[in-house]
């Protein structure tokens, strides 16, 4: 009988629910409510600015804007599900974008810029991960320190100047000519990162271990999971996402600046939270985070189209975060 446990292929098969029922049960209610919010925002946009909001240009703009912060959010979502927090993402994006656009780096063209951005992201992630996992330091403190020093280093390298990119192949990526079926390449990168993140979280041992160490680190440790190594890998992943985002930002703005990625940490954490990720770890989805990013970006776009100041945007964002967390609480306690 123990052979049955060890050889699942033979003998008893689980009572599988019908595929349709399982699919339905898999769609998180929270995602439905986020989709509803997104739908409502689109309706509001279509009603208030019918011609502008639904134009191809505007939709491309929304998606492009969502892409950079979206990639960062995917990384942050992993870190939060794993029971950590990463406050340094914005600063890492800034440092990577600056480092990747120095005159020296630009000599190597697109590959040089891309490689450098990813390497800087990974490097910062490595430092974060080593501090958190093996320090061991509280993630909040370790990444706060990284926030401060990465931004400082970015300022030092750029000397506060905007570093204009002169590499044609990089700039071309942001032009309409590079769009694939009307979709900007940056959006494709975001989509690829999201799908990959979704697969990794749900379908790999890495994802499962992330959920485990976030949900119950002690149980994971006693179950034989290398908790420290997993933590390190999570911060590396987050750093890598920052590197990708930095490259995207370079393409988008045609420059590298030490002020890039300002407050990305807050936007990314907020998007993950309203997407249903528990700040204490152990639960969360990439789908929710992506929806969260889209909701935020759409709000920003709507407010801009209606000439509302950014202060109003900030207040609205705050209200949404509170509402989303209250909805979460109501659901988990029931």
């Amino acid at each position: 009988m123990l052979t049955a446990a060890t050889d699942p292929g033979a003998g008893s098969l689980p009572p599988t629910k019908s595929p349709a029922r399982r699919a339905v049960s898999r769609i998180d209610l929270r995602h439905l409510s986020l989709l509803a919010v997104l739908g409502a925002l689109v309706v509001v946009g279509a009603l208030t600015k019918p011609s502008e909001f639904l134009s191809t240009d505007n939709l491309q703009l929304i998606l492009t804007q969502a892409s950079v912060i979206g990639v960062v959010t995917v990384g942050v979502t992993f870190v939060i599900i794993g029971g950590g927090i990463d406050l340094s993402v914005g600063a890492i994006v800034a440092l990577a974008s600056v480092w990747a656009t120095t005159v020296a780096t630009q000599e190597y063209g697109l590959p040089g810029i891309l490689f450098c951005a990813l390497l800087v992201g990974l490097g910062c992630g490595l430092v974060n991960g080593l501090l958190v996992a093996y320090g061991p330091m509280v993630p909040f403190i370790a990444t706060l320190a990284m926030l401060a020093s990465a931004r400082g280093l970015a300022l030092q390298i750029s000397d506060g100047r905007t570093q204009v990119v002169t590499v044609e192949s990089v700039l071309d990526l942001g032009l309409p000519d590079a769009y694939v079926l009307g979709i900007p390449p940056l959006v494709l990168i975001f989509a690829a990162v999201s799908v990959l993140g979704w697969l990794v979280l749900g379908r790999t041992t890495f994802g499962r271990r992330t959920v485990a160490i976030g949900g119950n680190p002690e149980a994971s440790r006693l179950a034989g999971i290398a908790v420290k190594r997993q933590r390190l890998l999570l911060y590396l992943l987050s750093g890598l996402c920052c590197g990708i985002a930095a490259f995207m930002l370079v393409v988008l703005t045609g420059s590298g600046q030490n002020t890039n990625g300002n407050l990305y940490e807050l936007d990314a954490i907020a998007a993950a939270i309203i997407g249903g990720t528990l700040l204490s770890g152990g639960r969360g989805t990439i789908t929710g985070s992506v929806l969260g990013v889209l909701v935020f970006t759409t709000i920003t776009n709507l407010f801009a189209l209606n000439n509302l100041q950014s202060d109003v945007q900030q207040i609205a964002k705050g209200a949404i975060i509170v509402a989303a967390v209250l909805v979460q609480k109501g659901r988990t306690s029931s």
């Binding site: 446990a5 699942p8 003998g11 379908r203 041992t205 890495f206 485990a212």
Partner: peptide, 24 residues
């Protein structure tokens, strides 16, 4: 949780096998 490696190839989990084994 302690045997994830058994249900994965190159890190990818085989959810069906995992579930079946858990059930058994």
């Amino acid at each position: 949780l302690s045997s994830l490696g058994r249900f994965s190839t190159g890190g990818w989990l085989d959810g069906r096998r995992e579930r079946a084994a858990a059930l058994a």
